[in-house]
Design a protein around this nucleic acid. Structure first.
Lengths: 169, 169
DNA sequence: TCAAATTGTTTGACTATCAAACAATAATCA
DNA sequence: TGATTATTGTTTGATAGTCAAACAATTTGA
């Protein structure tokens, strides 16, 4: 059978409404309606693209985005508690448990004794964790270069500024 | 007990590495390390904020973001198949089934007979679906205004352009 | 005509998430 | 000090979203 597949148009004929099939069996490209004009949609599309490149980029290290985030935050805040990590990652502290479990099982992170609170764990990178982080940062830099490949330095700065203003309200 | 909580700094002291607690029990704000300088991180942060506003905005209608996307695409492509919808939404066609199930159970969408392919369903909005979409579009406009509230018209255009270039590689 | 592909569906697995409860521990206050 | 209240990490259970594989019905292409 012929491989057909549906393409998705980025530019829009007007009005943005049509039939997906005009004649018997003849398939046209899909319209996205008003979606392309929406900031929310464009933002989601860019984020999806970047996330996919990120995930693929870190795939070689066998680490998920959440695990990478944890490693970066532990590096920047040696000794933080699991609860604090949850706040920083925006996830529940009960979700931190299996996350750290996996990193600890791979000997990348230690649950050290906390100096002043016997309930808490002080999270630290192991030597292997430090080494993994170095490899990871180099991948991260390559990733950043790729996603901004079509932007000038000034455009990148502008984009960062505008995004930060959207993010911070 | 006093409510403590951890704050998350947006600007960074250098170098971006410190102890989460300096003295016994004294908690400092968390460092984000190199994260704030990354385009990927800033993009994710903005997208998260926008997504939360979007979800809250559509909450009153009792519809999830995925369902909204489906309604918009069906409106713009009356009669499209479930497989095509899956491609447009970026999800597997087996995931389209429960999505349409719910919309059909609420009488917003019909699985009509397909004119030329007896395997396929031609998706259509019901009258109630059309009405819901109108309310939805008005919420969507309000949402778009909110998320761009801190941008001028020109800045919004610039942001859209830069994001599209990131998204399309 | 007949083999290969596609459609919608079901089933099963997997991940990520939260909420609620728990014991151990810490902090606050009377 | 002693009692109450809060927090920490954990376990358990629920929910949601996703995919892969298989299936019958149907369509397509050779």
């Amino acid at each position: 059978m012929r491989k057909t597949g549906v393409s998705v148009r980025k530019t829009e004929p007007l009005p943005a409404e049509n039939n997906a099939r005009d004649r018997a069996g003849e398939r046209r490209s899909l319209s996205l309606g008003r979606l392309p004009g929406l900031l929310g949609y464009t933002l989601r599309r860019a984020q999806l693209r970047v996330f996919q490149d990120f995930a693929a980029s870190m795939d070689g290290e066998g680490l998920t985005p959440g695990q990478i985030g944890a490693l970066l935050l532990i590096k920047a805040n040696r000794g933080l508690s699991q609860s604090d990590l949850g706040v920083a990652l925006g996830i529940d502290r009960s979700s931190v448990v299996p996350l750290i479990d996996r990193l600890q099982a791979r000997d990348l992170v230690r649950r050290a004794a906390h100096a002043s609170d016997r309930r808490a764990h002080a999270l630290e990178l192991s030597e292997a964790g430090e080494a993994a982080l170095i490899r990871l940062l180099s991948r991260l830099e390559a990733h950043e270069r790729r996603i901004a490949a079509h932007l000038s330095a000034g455009e990148r700065r502008t984009l960062m500024d505008l995004l930060a203003r959207v993010a911070d309200g």
